[in-house]
Amino acid sequence: MFKARITTAVSALGATAAGTILLGCSASVEVNKSTPPKLSADKLSSTLSKKLAATTGQAKPDISCPEALVGKVGTTTRCTLTADDGSTLGITVKVTSVSGDQIHYDFKADAKASPAAN
C-alpha cells in the first residue's frame, strides 16, 4: 500500500515536470571562451535540472546529457530525465542564439515517457 502511494507520487511529479517541459522553455548560460563556445554535458544537465525544479517547485530531477552543447545556432542534443521509478523522458535541447560566449537555447520534452526497464 505504501509503495503504491510513492509510485503514484513519483508518477504525478513526472507528469508535472513533463507538462512543464512540454510548454517549452528557454535558458542561457555563459561559458568559457572558445570558438565556438561549448557548454559541457555536466553543466547542461545541471542547468536543465535547476530550471525544471524552479519551474515546477519540485526537487531537482535526475537529468543526464551525453555530450557538450556546441554554441552554434540550430545545434541540437538529446538529454534524458530519469524518474524515481526508472521511467525516462527524452528532452531535446536546441541552440537558438549565441552572444559572444553565452549560449541561448530552448528545450522541450518528448510527448510520452518510456517505462522503466524490468
Score class of each variant (00 low, 15 high):
Thr16Val: 13
Ala9Cys: 04
Thr16Pro: 03
Ala68Arg: 06
Lys43Asp: 10
Thr8Phe: 07
Thr20Glu: 08
Met1Glu: 08
Ala59Asp: 11
Lys33Gly: 00
Asp42Glu: 07
Ser34Lys: 04
Ala59Glu: 11
Ala54Ser: 07
Ser49Asn: 09
Asn32Lys: 05
Ala9Tyr: 09
Ala27Phe: 10
Pro37Ser: 02
Ser40Tyr: 08
Ala4Thr: 11
Ala15Asn: 10
Lys38Phe: 08
Gly19Phe: 03
Gln58Ser: 12
Ser45Gly: 13
Ser46Pro: 01
Ala68Pro: 11
Ile63Asn: 04
Val10His: 10
Gly24Met: 05
Asp62Lys: 13
Cys25Trp: 10
Ala18Pro: 02
Thr56Ala: 11
Asp42Gly: 06
Phe2Cys: 06
Leu44Tyr: 13
Ser28Ile: 02
Ser11Phe: 09
Pro66Ser: 12
Leu13His: 06
Ala68Cys: 02
Lys43Cys: 00
Gly57Met: 02
Lys43Leu: 09
Leu44Cys: 00
Pro36Ser: 04
Ala41Val: 06
Gly57Asp: 00
Ala27Ile: 04
Ile6Trp: 10
Ala18Tyr: 00
Lys33His: 00
Leu44Glu: 00
Ser28Arg: 15
Lys50Leu: 04
Thr7Asp: 15
Cys25Met: 07
Ser34Gly: 12
Lys38Trp: 03
Thr20Gly: 10
Ala4Ser: 14
Cys65Phe: 09
Thr47Cys: 04
Thr56Cys: 07
Pro61Leu: 03
Gly24Trp: 06
Ser28Asn: 14
Leu39Gly: 03
Leu22Ile: 05
Leu22Ser: 09
Gln58Leu: 11
Ala59Thr: 09
Ala59His: 11
Ile21Trp: 03
Ala17Asn: 03
Ile63Met: 13
Pro66Val: 01
Ile6Pro: 07
Ser46Met: 02
Gln58Gly: 06
Ile63Tyr: 12
Ala53Arg: 13
Val31Gln: 03
Ala9Lys: 14
Ala68Lys: 12
Lys60Glu: 14
Asp62Cys: 01
Ile6Val: 15
Glu67Ala: 14
Ala15Gln: 14
Ile63Leu: 01
Ser28Cys: 03
Leu22Phe: 05
